[in-house]
């Protein structure tokens, strides 16, 4: 899910309404209406979160009764090369964030400025984002593997072939590039929505002052988009932590070695292939802490923006 809404809107909108008494016992009925939603979220997400925290302190292997082993799983994480590799891979991925923001931002501004064919570009750029990561991964696997089509094209053009997915120095960057290709349209839409709220009289005023195109971008458009850029940065980072599984699963399976393994994929490997659900739960908790940190940042950004407006 891309969007992470705040409770602000709903409470804003509700503030104008008085509570009303309708029917015999409306409060109980209202609670009854919200019960299915609350029950599903509680049973499948909130209770498992607490349960998983418990598992993370055990040696649970999926078969025998789990034994309490304290913080041993967490201590092992600190010296597990596979986990440390997955963290490094994650940091490399996050370090590319400026590209994930700048590319769609520049494209959005250009479309907003009225590049010929802008509407078509918007629709086409977003197209890969509606495809499943399995579809994207399967196609790019055919294109990028050593005997694949991309290398066939390179050879036809006189370049030498590169093992894009099989070489540990290029596999991670191939994975990142494919995911960027598949999802930049999402941020583009977010930026376009933000651009439509930039007051046009400010731009007109700047133009009358003789500001050049790039100057209006840098001094007016981008600063007024700052809250949206921050929002997109947080949403993109959340996506980097939690929506890469499908692509990794189909494109590289985490390899070669651990070179494209991210924490979310390692959780899958440890709980399944490695039969160590207790240990996998400890990685899950680390991932949860990162998510909670990002959510805290997001809430801060959004409440700051709410104060501004």
């Amino acid at each position: 899910m891309t969007a992470t809404p705040t409770s602000k809107d709903a409470s804003d909108a509700r503030s104008g309404q008085r509570k009303r008494r309708v029917g015999a016992n409306p409060e109980r009925l209202a609670l009854f209406f919200v019960l299915p939603a609350l029950a599903l979220v509680t049973i499948f997400r909130i209770v498992p979160l607490i349960w998983g925290l418990g598992y993370s302190f055990t040696d649970y292997n999926g078969i025998a009764e789990p034994n309490f082993i304290g913080l041993a799983n967490y201590a092992e994480l600190a010296r597990d090369p596979a986990f440390l590799d997955s963290l490094v891979n994650m940091l490399i991925l996050i370090a590319t964030l400026p590209i994930w923001i700048a590319l769609p931002l520049v494209l959005a501004i250009l479309i907003h400025q009225g590049v010929p064919g802008g509407k078509l570009f918007r629709a086409v750029y977003f197209f890969p984002a509606v495809l499943s990561s399995v579809i994207v991964g399967a196609i790019f696997n055919v294109l990028l593997r050593y005997d694949g089509s991309f290398n066939a094209m390179l050879k036809a053009l006189g370049f030498s072939a590169v093992d894009w997915l099989g070489n540990s120095s290029t596999a991670l960057f191939s994975l990142i590039a494919v995911q960027l290709w598949a999802t930049f349209g999402m941020s583009l839409l977010i930026f376009l929505a933000g651009l439509s709220t930039v007051p046009s009289d400010m731009l007109e005023a700047a133009k009358l002052d003789g500001a050049k195109l790039l100057q209006t971008w840098w001094y007016i458009v981008i600063p007024s988009l700052k809250p949206i850029i921050e929002f997109a940065a947080v949403v993109t980072t959340i996506g980097m932590l939690t929506s890469m599984f499908g692509l990794i699963y189909v494109l590289t399976a985490g390899g070669p070695g651990t070179s494209t393994t991210l924490p979310e994929f390692l959780i899958w490997l440890e709980q399944g292939k490695m039969n160590r659900p207790g240990y996998a739960s400890a990685i899950s908790m680390v991932l949860f802490l990162m998510m909670a940190g990002l959510a805290a940042i997001q809430i801060r950004i959004m409440s700051k923006n709410a104060n501004l407006s």
Binding site: I46, P48, L49, A280
Partner: peptide
Amino acid sequence: ILVSLMIPVQVVLVPFYRT
């Protein structure tokens, strides 16, 4: 309900499967 957004399936993979 909104806070549960912080709990994607990877975070509860093992207990979700047990559930």
